[in-house]
């Protein structure tokens, strides 16, 4: 029991580590790999929790995560990147140290925020709730600080990873119907941002969303 909790904590730490990696990774393939790794850690962690807590429906969630976040989504993104011919693009990321510090502050904030839940929870996974919230926050930070459309989407998906992790660690997973529905929504979203990348490229000649600033409020 105790060992399982420790392994789970290590996996949580790895998820957090990949979240920080995503925050500062400049190469687009690097981002994709990190995202796939994050999904893998998440999937292993979910399976482990399912085994330890004898929550067999978590096996399904684990396999779902593996399929969706380690195989399907990275594959879709990979295909898009190849088709858009942006695999060599290196994004300029400004102020890495500041971003990192903000990320650390967000982690501390998450621990503070989830303290009451940690106290109330009796689950093996209670120590990882804060990490889950931190992953959500780091995804959010990534979407704010980065200017590339693909990067923003990866930040969005990382947020979704964090939410899934939160569900697993706070409650041993949401009911299956909800998890399947969320998975379906993510797939539809993938379809939509795929279309979007091409539209943005066609219209703006690049995937840098910085250029999209025409809709300024009229003075």
């Amino acid at each position: 029991m105790n060992i399982a909790a420790q392994i789970n904590s290590i996996l949580a730490a790895l998820v957090l580590l990949t979240a920080f990696g995503l925050l500062v990774q400049r190469r687009i393939y690097g981002l994709l790999h990190l995202f796939a790794w994050q999904g893998l850690f998440l999937s292993i962690s979910t399976g482990l929790v399912g085994y330890v807590a004898r929550q067999h429906h978590l096996y399904i969630s684990s396999i779902l995560t593996l399929a969706l976040k380690v195989i399907v989504l990275p594959y879709i993104l990979h295909t898009l990147i190849v088709r858009l011919k942006i695999h060599k693009e290196v994004e300029t990321v400004v102020n890495i140290p500041t971003t990192m510090l903000m990320g650390i502050a967000l982690v501390i904030f998450s621990y503070h925020l989830t303290a009451p839940i940690r106290e109330l929870s009796t689950l093996v996974t209670r120590s990882t709730i804060a990490v889950a919230l931190a992953t959500v926050m780091l995804g959010l930070l990534m979407m704010i600080t980065r200017r590339h459309a693909v990067t923003q989407i990866i930040g969005f998906l990382a947020m979704e990873n964090g939410l899934f992790f939160a569900a697993t660690s706070a409650t041993y997973g949401m009911p299956l119907v909800v998890e399947l529905g969320v998975g379906l929504d993510i797939l539809i979203a993938a379809f939509i941002f795929g279309i979007f990348f091409f539209h943005i490229r066609e219209t703006f000649d690049s995937l840098d969303v910085e250029q999209m600033a025409r809709l300024k409020e009229e003075e």
């Binding site: 939410l163 979203a189 219209t203 703006f204």
Partner: peptide, 23 residues
């Protein structure tokens, strides 16, 4: 396209917070 992207990203982020609340 800009408006739709903004809509997609902002509402995506927003609604993710609501999912955490639901959890």
């Amino acid at each position: 396209i800009e408006a739709a992207w903004k809509y997609f990203i902002l509402c995506g982020v927003g609604i993710a917070q609501a999912l955490f609340g639901t959890v």
